[in-house]
Computed example of a mutant assay.
Amino acid sequence: MTTPDFEATADAFGLLADPVRVEIVDALWQSEETPVPYSDVRDAVGLRDSGRFNYHLSKLTDHFVEKTDDGYRLRPTGLLVVNAVYAGSYVDAPSREGIDVDGACPTCGAPLVGEYDAGMFRVSCADCDTQLFMLSFSPQGVARRDDEELLDAVSLHARAHTRRASGGLCPFCGGSMTSDLELDAETGLPLSTLVVTDCQNCGATNRSSVGFSVLEHPVVSGFLYEHGVAGDAPPWQFDWCLSDDPLTVESRDPPRVAVDVAANGADETLRVTVGADGHVAGTERVEAGAQ
């Protein structure tokens, strides 16, 4: 794992330690032209004291803002600030509970419910409290959506998150990720077989069921689409994403499993084999219920 430069990062955050500086970054983002003339930036911020405005602008220049002959524009680091501002990353997050996610608990069969709190979206059983899904999600992504819209958005976010991790791209820092198939992982879930991806840069770990890890594979997506399953259907609606029951251990050394992907009562399933590296090693269509 890479050792981060904490001092440089703290210095960069310190440069944003005034609302005027964040407003300057936002003004550059909102402008329809780039670079933005000095006078336009100042007018957008609305600060009459030119000395104070120049002081704050100078603190941002060369770090979050680039000065050109024609004005100012955001650097890529400034865009990251804008993303954090509009995602609501540093403000109090809303909370929501009791969301019907249209799924059943693989342990007891009771309905699954969703909740959002402290920046995390979770799906758990309404009766036995078994937690089946958890992923961070931006506060503003919740505040502006009703329950149905929120579920659609979280599903898309979860699929993109796992697709990036499975492809070796860290969803958090952009670093390289490696993956492994673990047969006897200790979890609080109704499964012990996981695909685990680890970032070699920031150390982030993504843990997913075998079913969820293959959900975005093109053969799996094509099979589900062929049988009328929406391409953005959430993982908690598939039994084969929630437990080890649809799995067959083909080998323990090296680890190798097969998961049977089922869709809408079809008379066939897609058997997906996953190897020790956590990636799809093969697929075949079999009669539903076949061993």
Rank of each mutant, 00 (worst) to 15 (best):
G88D: 05
D102P: 00
A87F: 08
V82G: 01
V85S: 15
N83W: 05
G98S: 15
E97N: 11
V82M: 05
G103H: 12
A104C: 02
V82S: 01
D100K: 13
V113C: 00
V101D: 03
D102I: 00
D102S: 07
E97F: 11
G103T: 12
V81T: 01
D100N: 12
A84W: 10
A84S: 12
D92M: 06
T107K: 11
P106D: 04
C105H: 04
L80E: 09
L80N: 04
C108R: 05
A87I: 09
G78N: 08
G88L: 06
D92V: 11
A84P: 08
L80V: 01
D100Y: 07
T107N: 10
L79S: 05
C105V: 09
P111A: 04
A87T: 12
A84D: 15
S89Q: 09
G98V: 14
G103L: 13
I99A: 02
G78Y: 07
I99K: 03
S95N: 09
R96G: 02
D102L: 04
A104P: 01
E97V: 10
N83K: 09
V101I: 07
I99M: 04
Y86D: 08
D92A: 13
G88N: 04
G109T: 14
V91M: 07
S89R: 09
T107Y: 05
D92R: 13
G98M: 14
Y90D: 08
V82I: 13
S95T: 13
E97I: 06
S89P: 03
G88T: 08
A87C: 12
L80I: 00
V91N: 10
G109R: 15
V85I: 15
G103Y: 13
Y90L: 11
N83S: 09
V81K: 01
E97C: 05
I99P: 02
P106C: 06
G88R: 04
S95L: 03
V82T: 05
V85A: 15
G98F: 14
L112H: 03
A84T: 11
G88A: 05
A87V: 07
T107E: 14
P111Y: 01
A84R: 10
C108G: 09
P111I: 00
V91L: 12
P111G: 03
N83Y: 09
L79Q: 08
Y90I: 05
P111K: 03
V113K: 01
L112Q: 01
L79F: 12
S95K: 06
G98E: 14
D100E: 13
V82H: 02
V113R: 02
P106Q: 04
N83P: 00
A93M: 04
S89L: 10
V85P: 15
S95F: 06
V85W: 10
R96P: 02
V91E: 14
L79T: 08
C108Q: 08
E97D: 15
T107P: 00
P106Y: 03
D100Q: 11
Y86N: 12
